[in-house]
Every structure is written in structure tokens, then in C-alpha cells.
Write a protein that binds this DNA or RNA. Structure first.
Lengths: 147, 147
DNA sequence: TCAACATTGATGCACATGCATCAAGTGCGC
DNA sequence: GCGCACTTGATGCATGTGCATCAATGTTGA
């Protein structure tokens, strides 16, 4: 808990100093940009990001306000909607990644060998396994770098 | 990050369902109860808990409101004060620990062998080492259990 | 000694979050 | 086809957090 709080804090702080929005924005933009069509249902986003429903709803509000994403109606389910990333959103995601990756390297990568990182992922995965479901497992580190 | 968020969430949720206050209260009470005299300067608490100054100040407000701690004047430095845990505070800390330890066991202990837990601590310590200072290191797991 | 600076702790204000609840829409069983 | 339970997403309200700043005291150095 202490380590996580310290590291996350340091990372958020560095990003803020570089003039970027909070990490949650990046995570959302990343998920959207990874979707094959560039759009997701809020419900999907919610599950990806481990956020409560209302929190997702408000995050989307902000992204839309800033022109980083757009709400699209969902024809097969009129309750729902799609959230689509805009060009501006994709650009911000990329710019944030170049800063973010450097910050991660500084606070995490530089302190752990690749082998250690893999060990760490393995141990942590065991803690997450109960309610998570789909076992993302060991692709974790490479996945992160491929962001 | 995902694992931490999931585990912390689960733990906080379980504690809340059992009718207990947030974990931060426990952490504060624990630090106070561990102090030889049962009192600490807010500044000390702040460092122990990795909390911003104003956050500590407000946490203390709430503890005092609930009669779990009391503010005492500090004679050697009239700006400052001491925060002293009350009997009620010590009792709550103990009651919370019996629930808390069970919850930790459920969400963490039961998923990791002792050897793995030590490995995990070792790896995490390396991430925390930059700004932390006093290297609490490997006593981590035993320390936790001795709470 | 005294001015400049640092430390301690509190607080006003804007903004974020959690909770409960709502409206709208879906789909299932009958 | 109809009622009823469920899903989806938004929102009002109370509470919590972050930031900036303040008042009070302590410390340092010329």
C-alpha cells in the first residue's frame, strides 16, 4: 500500500507538472483508442477501468467537454450509447504516453530488472485472481510497454 | 495498480460492511497507539501515513470529534500540539484489527505463501526506496502481523 | 536585537467522489 | 401482448480532497 501510494503519487505529480490531465483520462483514452472501432460502451470502459458507474459517466462528460471524445447513439440499444475517441483524443493519448512512459521508467523501470518485473507481475496476479475473471497474466509487462 | 485498487477496495468495502470507519482511521489510531506515550505530533503522523498536511489535520478533527483522540498542547513549541489516543481510541483500534486481520487474510494472506509474501515485499521495497528514507525493509510482513 | 525566513497547523473555496435514486429502455416468462 | 425484474446511464446531495493561503510561533544570521 505504501509503495503503491508513493509511486502513483510521484507519477501523477510528474504528469501534472508537465501540464497533463489526470492519469484516469489517459487510461480512458487508451482503452478507447485500442478498441477496433475507436468506440466503446460506457459499461465496457467501466469494467476495464475498475471505476464505479457514476464515475465513468462523469469522466466521459469531461472528455466530451474537452473535445477528446464524443457520445454517439447506440442503435441496437436505445438506453445506451457509444463513446468515440476523437482525433484530438488520439493525439493527447500519444503525447501523454511519451511523457508517461518516461515517468514510469524513472519511477519503476529503472529500479527493477526485467526478470524482477516479471516476478512481481506473477506475484501480484495471484492477488488479483479472485474477482477479476479473465486472467490477463504474464503478458503484463510487455503489454504495458506496447501501450 | 489494478491489483492494488482491487484489493484495497475489497478490504475497505468489507470493513465498511462490518460497520467500521475508513482504514485511514485505523492507520492513525495504530500509529498513535504504538507511540510510547500514546501521543504524536500531527507532523509525525503525517509522515508515517504519507498524507498531505491538511488531510492529517482534518483526519485528526474527525478522530477528536468521535472521542477517539484528544488534542493536547505542546509546551516546548507553542505552534504545535500533541494528539493523544483515548481509551475509546485504543479499543476501536483493537476491534478493528480483529476484523481487519481477517479481511487481510482473506484477500491477501490466503493467496500467498509466506515465502512469496517475503519475495513480494522485497520487490516492492525496491520501488519505494527513492524518497522514503528509513528503509523499513524486510521486517514488513512480520511487522504487519504483529500489528 | 531584530528582520527575514521556515515550520506548524487550520481553513475558505472550488472541485471530485460516493451514495442513493431516477428515467428510459430491454428482455424474460407467462 | 403485458407485467416485472434488470440494465444502462445521469444526477442531486452530502461529504471528502486539493490548493492556496493564513496566523502564530520558532530559528537564524547580520
Amino acid at each position: 500500500m505504501r509503495v503503491q501510494s508513493r509511486v502513483l503519487n510521484a507519477v501523477e505529480q510528474d504528469l501534472k507538472k508537465a501540464g497533463f490531465p489526470p492519469l484516469a483520462w489517459y487510461d480512458a483514452l487508451l482503452e478507447l483508442s485500442r478498441a477496433p472501432t475507436g468506440e466503446l460502451r460506457p459499461v465496457e470502459l467501466e469494467k476495464q477501468m475498475l471505476l464505479p458507474q457514476y464515475s465513468t459517466s462523469r469522466l466521459i462528460d469531461r472528455l466530451v467537454d474537452e473535445g477528446l471524445a464524443a457520445r454517439r447513439e447506440c442503435k441496437m440499444d436505445k438506453r445506451g450509447q457509444f463513446v468515440e475517441i476523437t482525433e484530438a483524443g488520439r493525439e493527447l493519448q500519444k503525447k501523454m504516453w511519451s511523457a508517461y512512459s518516461a515517468v514510469i521508467e524513472k519511477h519503476v523501470g529503472s529500479k527493477l530488472s526485467d526478470a524482477d518485473a516479471i516476478k512481481l507481475c506473477g506475484l501480484l496476479d495471484r492477488l488479483g485472481c479472485c474477482s477479476g475473471g479473465e486472467t490477463p497474466s504474464l503478458a503484463a509487462k510487455d503489454g504495458a510497454l506496447a501501450r
